[in-house]
Design a protein around this nucleic acid. Sequence first.
DNA 1: AAGCGGATCGTCT
DNA 2: GACGATCCGCTTG
Length: 211
Amino acid sequence: MLTAFLLTAFKLFLMTLLPRSFFSRSPDAVARELLGKVLVSCIRGQRLAGRIVEVEAYFGKDDPAAHSAAGKTARNAVLFGPPGHAYVYFIYGMHSCVNVSCEPEGQAGCVLIRALEPLSGLDTMARLRGLSPAKPKMLASGPGRLCQALAITRATHNGLDLTDPASDLQIQDDGFRPEKITATPRIGIRKAVENPHRFVIHGNTFVSKAP
DNA sequence: AAGCGGATCGTCT
DNA sequence: GACGATCCGCTTG
């Protein structure tokens, strides 16, 4: 009991918030290095957290599949702002998906977070997902699922600064480093289908789809 | 195990 | 007025 408490305290102590400079780079580089980091959502004082195990890179220039391909609009404006902010969009009439803006201000690259390995707050995640009992792989394996599990919506989270210590949505580093990363084509798009800009932690069972 | 279609609505043409 | 960076349940094999 005491040991568990000390381990938890030590782990929290080791947690660091990723700085804005981390995100002010190419989406490919940010995507790869986001694997293994921890996405944290604080909802009504509770900490819902999961390790990022699957991501996709989208580019501000020369990427027909990106939401920013046709230029800046009210919907995608966050992508053209400073790096390290949440771009949350609503899709198919019922799902939310969350991205992190990358590259310097004015360039619209981003990384779509596609799957988490749940770490804390699993009971609440299951309730938010409408699942009982909680099957861990059903909680946050998929971009729509993870937003539902962490209560992320466009109305509440779009534009949040993920590098702000006071933010209710953060990305933290707990020291975990993936042993091997696999690159595959991106999922669910119809343009630029071939380019391998989807990255997963090799062998992780919480990815949304087998490689 | 894999494939199909319905649900559902904000955004841009 | 069409479509989409999805999910789920149902069907078939």
